[in-house]
Nucleic acid binder design. Structure first.
Length: 287
DNA sequence: ATGTCTGTAGTATACAGA
């Protein structure tokens, strides 16, 4: 299997992010990209992105609805067996509502990659929170081969209090409840690894900062964008980091991309893995 | 600071979602 640079980025509208997204692709040169919150129909995404992405060698699978949500997979290491949505995904606000565009899966470079945008939940007493938990259960049920799976995207859950700038502000909030964290634990029990936290076990590492109140400048963020990798890809991780530079400057998303480099797969058995030196050597903490 | 962005409706400015 080839070496692969995989990235995930909640772009908060692909169209308004176009002037940042294309230069970012050129700079970081990811092979597989999971996008969330494209906020475009499939036709509108194709109109804006098909030509510039084809020029850069990417095949595209977009799953959109228009105003809200919308996910995509870009790949230049193959894009096969595309599945839109999840099997038996829940509906909101009623069971007869149309499914929201929150997941798209394809096989890219030998990996079964899913780009996910987990429902926000709003507040723990909101029906949207129950929907969030149902959606996470459907995500768990969708993983048929955890060994080669990669689930990447905006999980809208902070795995631990270390993933919050101030845990005291999240009492009685979504993103931190035992049920939400339990859903992440269930994915972990399938053998999926949170590869950024594994690489930076004690660092202040965030992926999202509210636009308001200078939160990014003060590094008051959360880590809710995750790459969850199965045993096989997790053993190939040579770098895993958050691209804070993409959150700076004019017209950023409120999320930063997560970038994970996988080395080539070894021949034969994947034996005990000694974590190799990772790049970048030091993750910057400050804007 | 309930502090900013986004898209939509619709043409100025309000709304909702995050």
């Amino acid at each position: 299997m080839p070496a692969v640079r995989l990235a995930t980025w909640n772009v908060n509208s692909a169209l308004s992010r176009l002037p940042r997204l294309l230069p970012w692709l050129d700079e970081r040169a990811p092979d597989v990209v999971c996008l969330q919150e494209t906020k475009l129909s499939d036709a509108a995404f194709a109109e804006a992105f098909d030509a510039p992405l084809a020029e850069r060698g990417y095949a595209v699978a977009h799953h959109g609805e228009g105003r809200w949500n919308g996910v995509a997979l870009l790949s230049r290491v193959g894009l096969d067996d595309v599945e839109r949505g999840l099997p038996a995904e829940p509906r909101f606000p009623t069971p007869d509502a149309p499914a929201e565009a929150r997941a798209v899966t394809a096989t890219c470079g030998g990996l079964r990659v899913t780009s996910v945008y987990v429902p926000n939940g709003r507040t723990p007493d909101d029906p949207h929170y129950a929907y969030k938990l149902e959606w996470l259960a459907a995500l768990h049920a969708s993983v048929s081969d955890p060994g080669s799976a990669v689930i990447a995207g905006d999980m809208n859950v902070a795995p631990t209090d270390d993933d919050l700038w101030d845990p005291s502000l999240f009492v009685d909030s979504t993103h931190v409840t035992p049920a939400e964290r339990g859903a992440l634990a269930s994915l972990r029990e399938l053998g999926l690894h949170d590869v950024v936290r594994d690489r930076w076990p004690a660092e202040r590492v965030f992926s999202y900062w509210d636009y308001r109140a200078g939160r990014f400048h003060q590094d008051l963020g959360m880590r809710i964008d995750l790459v969850l990798a199965g045993t096989e890809p997790a053993a190939r991780v040579v770098a895993a980091w958050i691209d804070r530079k993409a959150r700076k400057g004019k017209g950023p998303s409120d999320h930063a991309p997560v970038i994970v480099d996988l080395d080539t797969a070894p021949d034969g058995d994947i034996g005990p893995v000694v974590p190799p030196p990772s790049t970048p050597a030091k993750l910057p903490h400050r804007a």
